[in-house]
Design a protein around this nucleic acid. Structure first.
Length: 725
RNA sequence: GCUCGUGUAGCUCAGUUGGCUAGAGCAUUCGGCUUACAUCCGAAAGGUCCGAGGUUCGAGUCCUCGCACGAGCACCA
């Protein structure tokens, strides 16, 4: 043993040893009663290198290794996520560097190009997970685009469709004209912004007018009514009258609706159902027509007359100028502050636009999920997130799962070509999916796992498939059962390991992923997808900021592994952190933990040197120190086990840190050193016992150094992983 | 507006059924290359545990109110 622990000498070799000897490989034992412990790795996006957030999966490695040492049959299943829109966005950035865009390729070519990009990144990412020492069962790795996984996703979609929990409707969706796709509610970020609030006069007959306040004058061509509050005395006499949209001859009615706030603006509002969610609701209450004045490319359309073809911001300027000329602007509040919807990815404004999409009817699924969480069938750690999760389950809206993105799992919905001219849905739906089948019957969608052979109506066999792909989270939501079902094609692993033991992930994706896994998982399998949810915090830099490339404050995990060893990095993410809280990581902290690995190593080295010593053996007295040490060790282990069982990993680790360094090394070893050096075999044996006991306990946290020491003592064909806790 | 979190040593944070002198890492000061380790050892300095009130024999820990910071959600024409 060298005087220092040098991670680079061991880590790669040890990992290969583990992998080659199948130490991470889960088997189905003869004794099916043997207790299992299974975690499905949250599949990293296969489009980029790992960042420190991924290193937080060390919590999973800790659990897996711990449970293995506790003699359970463990499975930690790796995977990769195609990450649909995310990946396509990243790939488009790559294209940009070459002066290309997604429009330069046809669908198949673009898909193939992204495929190649993803596959090379995927293997890179996998090797980085190895470098972190993760005890993943690589043989069983799954990818969200594996054909058998896609098949499961299709089966789930079909089952949802058959149970009327998925429906197609033309509704307002969050659409990003730049990214060219719609999003679910979760992908929209609201930002505080200052915009002028325009008070615009809408002419009435007899040269009167009514003033409405709006930040979006350019949508006026889509107005189909003006609305006032029914209790508003100012406007009572105007209800039922006709107003004219400025700059046009279009006449619209004045209606009353309780959604209108008397206090705000002028108390009267323009109703633009195609471009505003509230207005859409008003329109559905009053059966107003829906007129789309803005196209999906963010330009005004023919409804806008001379403004057709202009982008929203340009059109707005022109319209305001013209309104001023017509003396139809009453006033402008230049300092109006409000929140606008922006695209979570590109940051540009989200346009609410009417679009035909597939939606999941969420209420029945969320209610089931809520029960599972409330009655403890699924337990959440740390506990405070339980309330959080339930809030989400209470507040989910129907989930738009259609994405206008090439990279992804194409939706298995088909229509007979004979009927397929234009939209088959000629009415709009606000919230009642049950009205859907009416339209469907006229020109139905077939949802089927395989491409349908014949049209059930005309017998034809010429189908077109929906162009859209699934929201990535729709496939991710099925990950625990989709993976286990497809490992051997015979459900063996599913039967033995499902429901999985723990879902461990960052608290930031609670609604995106955890909630949806519970909803979809239970729907598809009639079982909870996991018994426990353990949520970790986010990694932040020294000043508490979230790490991001644009801020330039990222710490590359692999650079840190190369410099200080994987154990040091892993420990830095765990040490002194309350579960579920954000963790501040700095290079100094990693160095501190590197020093601890070296301390562990050197305690071992002391014992190792003395066990090789040829001094005369004796067993002189030690004044009760050995007994005291044994007792302390026993208590330590007891506390350790309790902490580990309660998911208090940081405290468990801190406990060993303190014991090894400040009790065993600084105190007992110092006091007993002279005796050991003089050949006291009894002391040496007792030190060994306590030391090895701690080595096993700390192994889940610092797998490499502990294995390196183990093999230094017992030979390179031995492994600490076969020990027992 | 609603929900949640945080506020403890100069900095980053632990401290989970209320209980010995409130801890760790880093930083600081002093002394040490003592054959396990200088990626170390020994010692020191450093805290009105955000504030006020309450429960209690006893509160960093529990309750109420307040202040500060942060996060998420909702509304906004």
């Amino acid at each position: 043993m060298d005087s220092r622990y040098l991670p680079a000498l061991f880590e790669k070799k040890i990992y290969q040893f583990w992998e080659k000897n199948g130490l991470f490989k889960a088997k189905i034992p003869k004794d099916k009663k043997k207790e299992t412990f299974c975690i499905i790795l949250p599949p990293p996006n296969a489009n980029a290198d790992l960042h420190l957030g991924h290193a937080m999966y060390v919590y999973e490695d800790i659990m897996i290794r711990y449970q293995k040492l506790r003699q359970k049959e463990v499975l930690w299943l790796p995977g990769a996520d195609h990450a649909g829109f995310e990946t396509q966005y990243v790939f488009e950035k790559e294209l940009q560097k070459k002066g290309q865009t997604r429009f330069d390729f046809d669908r198949n070519t673009l898909y193939q190009k992204i495929w190649d990009f993803v596959i090379s990144n995927k293997s890179k990412m996998e090797n980085q997970l190895r470098q972190l020492g993760f005890s993943l069962d690589w043989e069983k790795e799954r990818f969200t685009l594996d054909p058998d996984i896609i098949k499961i996703v299709y089966q789930t979609f079909k089952k949802l469709f058959d149970k009327k929990l998925v429906y197609r409707a033309k509704r307002l969706v969050n659409y990003c004209p730049y990214c060219g796709t719609s999003f679910s509610d979760l992908e929209v970020i609201y930002k505080e912004r200052k915009d002028p609030l325009y008070y615009i006069k809408y002419p009435l007959k007899n040269s009167q007018s009514i003033t409405v306040a709006t930040t979006r004058p350019e949508t006026m061509f889509g107005d189909t009514a003006l609305a006032v509050n029914p209790k508003d005395k100012r406007y009572k006499s105007l209800i039922g009258q006709i107003a004219v949209i400025p700059l046009t001859n279009n006449k619209i009615p004045i209606i009353s609706d309780q959604a209108v706030d008397l206090e705000f603006g002028s108390g009267a509002v323009k109703v633009t159902p195609a471009h505003d969610f509230t207005d859409f609701e008003i329109a559905s209450r009053h059966h107003l027509p829906i007129k789309q004045a803005i196209n999906f490319d963010g330009r005004l359309n023919e409804l806008a007359g001379k403004y057709q073809g202009f982008f929203i911001s340009q059109a707005r300027k022109l319209i305001i100028e013209d309104l001023k000329k017509e003396n139809l602007i009453e006033k402008i509040n230049e300092n109006y502050s409000h929140r606008v919807a922006t695209c979570y990815k590109c940051g540009r404004l989200i346009e609410p636009l009417p679009k035909e999409q597939w939606f999941i009817k969420i209420k029945p699924l969320a209610n089931k999920a809520k029960k599972l969480v409330e009655n403890g069938k699924i337990k959440i750690y740390p506990r405070r997130f339980k309330k959080n999760l339930i809030d989400w389950l209470d507040n989910f809206h129907d989930w738009n799962i259609s994405r206008q993105v090439v990279w992804g799992i194409r939706i298995p919905a088909y229509r007979c070509k004979k009927f397929s001219t234009g939209s088959n849905i000629d009415s709009y739906f606000s919230s009642d999916p049950n009205s859907m089948p009416e339209g469907s019957r006229r020109n139905p969608w077939f949802v089927s796992v395989e491409r349908p052979a014949h049209c059930q109506i005309c017998g034809g066999n010429d189908f077109i498939q929906d162009e859209d792909t699934f929201d990535t989270w729709f496939s991710s939501a099925q990950w625990p059962f989709a993976t286990l079902l497809t490992i051997d094609g015979k459900k063996n692993f599913y039967n033995y390991f499902y429901p999985t033991s723990v879902m461990e992930t960052g608290y930031d994706i609670l609604p995106w992923w955890v909630a949806r896994m519970i909803m979809i998982g239970y729907f598809a399998t009639d079982k909870v997808p996991f018994y426990h949810v353990f949520l970790h915090g986010l990694v932040r830099d020294k000043s508490g900021k979230k790490m991001s490339k644009s801020k330039g404050n990222v710490i590359n995990p692999i650079t840190m592994v190369d410099k200080y060893g994987a154990d040091a990095l892993r420990a830095a993410l765990i040490f002194g952190v309350k579960e579920g809280n954000d963790v501040v990581v700095s290079e100094e902290k990693i160095i501190g933990m590197r020093n601890f690995t070296n301390k562990i190593w050197n305690i071992g080295r002391f014992i190792w040197i003395n066990s090789k010593s040829t001094k005369n053996k004796n067993s002189s007295l030690t004044n009760g120190l050995l007994e005291k040490m044994a007792k302390e060790f026993k208590e330590e282990k007891k506390r350790y086990l309790k902490l580990m069982e309660n998911y208090q990993f940081s405290r468990a680790f801190g406990l060993i840190y303190d014991f090894l360094w400040h009790r065993l090394a600084d105190f007992y070893l110092e006091k007993l050193k002279a005796k050991v050096n003089n050949g006291n075999i009894k002391v040496l044996k007792e030190l060994e016992k306590v030391y090895f006991g701690n080595l096993i306990m700390v192994h889940p946290f610092m797998p490499f150094v502990t294995e390196a020491i183990w093999q230094s003592f017992f030979g390179e064909n031995q492994t600490i992983l076969n020990q027992q806790l």
